[in-house]
Design a protein around this nucleic acid. Structure first.
Lengths: 245, 245
DNA sequence: TATTAGACACGACAAAAGTCGTATACAAAA
DNA sequence: TTTTGTATACGACTTTTGTCGTGTCTAATA
């Protein structure tokens, strides 16, 4: 599935006025970067290039030198780590308005995981060199990245706790609750085309069979209902209880 | 064991000249902070207070608002996360020259884990407010923290991979190799007074019994030898093989 | 020297997670 | 409509991890 064909450079004409305003608009929607002064946003914008990736394409590979930082404009991306035996562990699921690739760029190392587009995706690519310079110059930008990376650390601490201390069932219950949306008063987790059991298993750090069992256990106990296009959370309170086991 | 008695404020006379040079010397030894200009180091130093903790004392608790950042001058500290059932997962083991508590201070949240002194410890305490101000003012300091937090993220990614994808035996082999020291041409992992099987188990995210089994398996296969005061790695190459299983 | 608390060994067992083979259902493509 | 590939179901089984009870050793202390 995951191929590494060349992505389509949609817009590399950095001076194009539409390009600039489009990226500045995106920056205004990104957590920690919303309040950057206009001139800094502009400097970022001129360094950035828009690229498109299709579903399944690799944006960057684990181990590659991190020479770019990515701003996700639309679509979902996952970052995964693979073991030698081929098992996958999801590190992050990213949606529009999220930044990735920054950590390795700032530490000057290789990307710690592989980034794969889960669906057609538009990303802005900023060369690491440019971003490092800008960050060293503008303390607002530096503080934004400090906060951003701080949140990443907190997220990973949570992930460690989840994997180390909780059962698959508990992790599943938590993940479902976190991704639920209100629809007509009931909680629903929408299933996108790429939300297969395999992907969900990777997300929880397990394999399909185990995930399937856990899901059907919860279904048997009337805590939820698995549909083809969504998972209906029948008993959020009950699920929350399971989440801490 | 872990009590929360008041720590001894050893030196709070910030203008004491010995105080200043002592902390500036420490800063010069801390990764990412070695090359800070003298005036910045001085500004940090005047805000800092030296404190002492005895073995087992809690430096801060998970969930407490993060209003200070710590620089570890001597001794070992661990940061752990506890589940409701009382199981512990180690997040970090920290030694002299390491910084901790910074992430939560910068994100303005609560500490994600509990910090406990494993032996008598001297730490410099910097109020979060002061450090935040200094970081916003001095881009060198900001970049230092960006790099520091970046390394933390990379560390946690590794920890996630370890816990999710590797067996206890593999994690054990890796941890031993990472903590080994050369003595007379042989690799030895020294056992400090607090390096009990229980602590080692927490470090690997498991329980004593399981750790004990793994250790004796490796011993039976002549890969290592468990002594009272050290673990001798007889076959580093063999251990490395185990480390990826 | 006698006592005691903590660290560790060991075997039996239980539970969770992972593996495998095979069967079925469905959707997209031919 | 038929074909084909992918997603999922399901039961049997293995391995790994976690739990429990009991017993031994040792170092510190009385």
């Amino acid at each position: 599935m995951s191929s590494r064909n060349k992505s389509t450079p949609v817009s590399s004409l950095n001076s194009d006025p539409g390009h600039l305003t489009r990226l500045k608009t995106l920056l205004a929607k990104i957590r920690h970067f919303e309040n950057l002064p206009s001139d800094i946003r502009e400097e970022i914008a001129v360094a950035a290039t828009l690229r498109h990736f299709d579903a399944g394409q690799v944006i960057y590979l684990e181990g590659e030198p991190a020479d770019a930082v990515y701003l996700l404009e639309s679509g979902w991306v996952k970052a995964v780590r693979m073991s030698r035996e081929g098992r996958e562990q999801a590190l992050l699921f990213l949606r529009d308005g999220e930044v990735f690739g920054d950590v390795a760029a700032f530490t000057g190392t290789a990307y710690p995981g592989t980034a794969i587009a889960l669906e057609p995706v538009d990303v802005w690519v900023i060369p690491a060199k440019n971003l490092l310079d800008l960050t060293a110059q503008h303390s607002e930008l530096a503080m934004a990245f400090i906060r951003h990376m701080g949140e990443r650390v907190l997220y990973y601490v949570g992930l460690v706790e989840d994997i180390a201390l909780r059962s698959v069932e508990a992790r599943l219950a938590n993940t479902l609750l976190r991704n639920a949306e209100q629809h007509d008063g009931i909680l629903i987790v929408p299933r996108r085309s790429w939300t297969t059991f395999d992907e969900m298993a990777v997300r929880l750090g397990t394999v399909r069979d185990v995930l399937s069992r856990a899901l059907h256990n919860l279904e048997r106990e009337k805590l939820l209902e698995v549909g083809r296009h969504e998972i209906i959370l029948l008993d959020p309170t009950g699920l929350e209880k399971r989440g801490s086991l």
